[in-house]
Nucleic acid binder design. Structure first.
Length: 474
RNA sequence: GGCGGCAUAGCCAAGUGGUAAGGCAGCGGUCUGCAAAACCGCGAUUCCUCGGUUCAAAUCCGAGUGCCGCCUCCA
């Protein structure tokens, strides 16, 4: 079945046909490094990470570029408030960004280009735009003329038209622009501690040029998917598209599919500075397994809004653990030697196959992770069912079937970035577990309970079942 | 004011014409040294409301209501 993806540009689900067969190139708008990133940002990173992993799981060669905006108003503002240089602020939070991504279990992009390292390329693009008549210089600033892009259909990505935008536009007092809709490609230096020489004098690049330049440089033109948060559709991506179109000739020569993820709310409210309700991913990870965060963020379709509430998060904790523990239980069963007799468990084998089909068709339909996760649960419950069934005999054949089912669950989970495999216990936990096993054999339950408490403190859960003791990481 | 989206059980959430996936929570039971987990059983005669199209609609059309996003920095 064909892989379909919702394209913001056409407002339709389209078949994903890569520019280069077998390869998929993705450009995701990365962070502006002026602060730690919050769970809302994390949603974007994790959604893209899951899409990337799934595509790779399907056999595509994926190239992901995720930029770092390290020159920007917000960085300059923060630097000046703290008496530091913009460069210092950017470097600090770039380091935190990579640290937090790793903790979140998000794989690093293939390239992480920085705006400040592509000033020359941006200037070249601006020169081209001026040469083609799409941009004009005004006292050291350079602006893009939206009016000139009208013929090319400016507004088509965000589905707005110029007249409406003009009607709603704010009048800026210090405006040098010919039209309020025009946007800055190059901003004249105002002694903010960060500037470069240019044909138009000292200054720094404007908002939307970097992605234009860096996507082309690292992915080649055209490339497949241009992604980002829904709020970037306008004006960022609209303006970026206008520039690319003006410079390269047409939309088709830039990005083929535009993908935007919905926002994450906090208890029904938009995350914002004024409400002081931003949850930093870094803080949450202090108390929460990163897998739970991923599970929660993938539990809704990526384009739907999602609400972070205590209840919803608790639900994710329980659900995610259920998947993990299933594999621990399967591993425990597989720990025992095979026995003779019994008949093959045909149901499990069949269900494993059906589950993969359900998973793939969910993901192929515009990366429906919510539905794909449901398929994981179906598989998990079949595994548990089999182990528990009275007539299930762990003969050599069923051992293989169970192994396959468990491997399948791990593999499909992995395609979304979940690490469901049983984690190895620390030496200390292993020793405590062995001790507890002994205590239980001689029915010294007092000692057994104490050992369970000790394991709990170390972050392990000890469960007793018919098959024996199970100890696994919380 | 303009543009766009959404409305499915207590909560989350799939489902775009064929008779309501899945998860969490809850209740009853089995199991258990305990605990937890697990397993079995139980939930929407119905998908915001009202009309319409159709043999058939949560799914299509129209009207209404409510919520949200964007139009300004924002993932």
């Amino acid at each position: 079945m064909a892989l379909r993806i919702y394209n913001t540009l056409t407002s339709k689900k389209e078949e994903l046909v890569p520019v280069r067969p077998g390869e998929i190139s993705i450009y995701n708008c990365g962070p502006t490094v002026y602060n730690f990133f919050h769970v809302g940002n994390a949603r974007n990173f994790i959604v893209i990470d899951a899409i990337r992993r799934y595509l790779e799981w399907k056999g595509f060669k994926v190239k992901l570029a995720q930029n770092i905006t390290d020159v920007d108003d917000k960085i300059i503002k923060k630097a000046s408030a703290e008496g530091r240089t913009p460069g210092e602020v950017a470097r600090e939070f770039t380091a935190y960004y990579f640290e937090d991504l790793e903790k979140l279990g998000v794989r690093k992009a293939d390239v992480n280009p920085k705006a400040t390292e592509h000033i020359k390329e941006m200037q070249d693009l601006i020169s081209v735009l001026i040469g083609k008549g799409f941009a004009y210089e005004q006292n050291g600033d350079v602006y893009f003329s939206v009016e000139k892009a009208k013929a090319a259909g400016y507004g088509k990505l965000s589905h707005k038209n110029i007249e409406e935008l003009e009607a709603g536009a704010r009048i800026d007092v210090n405006e040098q622009k010919n039209s309020p809709l025009d946007f800055a490609l190059w901003k004249k230096d105002k002694n903010e501690g960060i500037s470069w020489d240019s044909p138009w004098g000292k200054g720094r690049p404007g908002w939307h040029t970097e992605c234009c330049v860096m996507s082309a440089k690292y992915l080649g033109l055209p490339f497949d998917i241009h992604a980002g948060g829904i709020d970037l559709v306008f004006p960022h991506h609209e303006n970026e598209l206008a520039q690319a179109e003006a410079a390269y000739g047409s939309t088709e020569k830039f990005a083929k599919y535009w993908l935007h993820n919905g926002h994450l709310n906090i208890r029904g409210q938009k995350m914002s500075k004024s409400l002081n309700n931003s949850l930093m991913a870094r803080d949450i990870m202090m108390t929460m397994n990163s897998g739970v965060i991923r599970f929660f963020l993938l539990s809704a379709h990526y384009r739907s809004p999602l609400d972070w509430t205590e209840e919803n998060v608790a639900s994710a904790v329980a659900g995610y653990n259920e998947l993990r523990y299933t594999l621990s239980r399967a591993a425990l069963a597989l720990d025992k030697p095979a026995v003779e007799g019994g008949s093959p468990d045909a149901v499990l084998l069949e269900k494993g196959k059906a589950m993969e089909e359900a998973f793939v068709s969910a993901m192929d339909d515009d990366f429906n992770t919510a539905s794909a996760i449901a398929a994981l649960f179906t598989c998990a419950s079949e595994i548990k069912n089999s182990i528990k069934k009275k007539d299930f005999v762990l003969n050599a054949q069923n051992r293989e079937v169970l192994k396959l089912a468990a491997a399948k669950l791990a593999s499909l989970g992995g395609a979304l970035g979940f690490r469901l495999e049983t984690e190895d216990l620390s030496a200390e936990a292993l020793a405590l577990a062995a001790e507890r096993e002994k205590a239980r054999k001689i029915k010294d339950f007092k000692a057994s309970d104490e050992l369970r408490a000790k394991l709990d403190k170390l972050g392990y859960i000890a469960e007793d079942s018919r098959m024996g003791q199970m100890v696994f990481k919380k």
